[in-house]
Amino acid sequence: MSRLLVEALAVAAKDLRTEFRTRVALNALGLFALTVLAAVSYTVGPYRITAEDRPFLLAVLLWIVIFFAALAGLDRSFVKEEESHTAPLLRLAASPTAVWLGKLGFNLVLIYFLMAILVPLYCILMGYKIQLVGGFALILVSGGYALAVITTIVAAIIARALTRGALFSVLSLPLLLPLLIFLIQGTAGAADGTAETVTSTLRAVLSMGGIMTIVSAMLFPVVWAD
């Protein structure tokens, strides 16, 4: 078990190091998010939406920005391995589970990094007031986790196909849609202060993230090896 963790950390560290030197995924993810944020805050701004609609509509916009930023960059770690022809040697050297854990870790770092910068900026620029900050943070953390788990396994699949770019969004979206709806609900709840919605959302998001983790762990070796 500890050996698996060491190997997974080696994979994640390798990905972070190459990412730090090339910044391909970070640029895709970060620039996309910031551009959209700028566009949204310019066109919608803090005062266009009436006070009663704000908790919900601003939650919709926030999660759409996060989801599409994720779809712009979270496939990079797998696609890059295939495009630069490094995948076969990794396949021969590392255990599939270590690769999956490492890539998942890398995607988690990316998504949390994105959230850490994007979410405060969004709240300031859009004037998004959150009543339950703790609940909001929990929703972000659990939502980011579920998002990373689902996109990681889909990225592993599409990396092995011929046409990759569009396929990632096409395959991810049906799987992400329920998650997106949960998270929007929960965030709206956190914004207008209904703790009940927040807890029910957390339950749904965590169970979805948990199930997807188990299924991914079982199926990833198949995706990776074939």
């Binding site: 390798k14 190091r17 190459t18 030197r21 090339t22 630069s84 022809h85 490094t86 076969p88 040697l89």
Partner: peptide, 8 residues
């Protein structure tokens, strides 16, 4: 067709 990591 099998490469090592160019960035490293």
């Amino acid at each position: 067709a099998m490469s090592v990591y160019e960035e490293l």
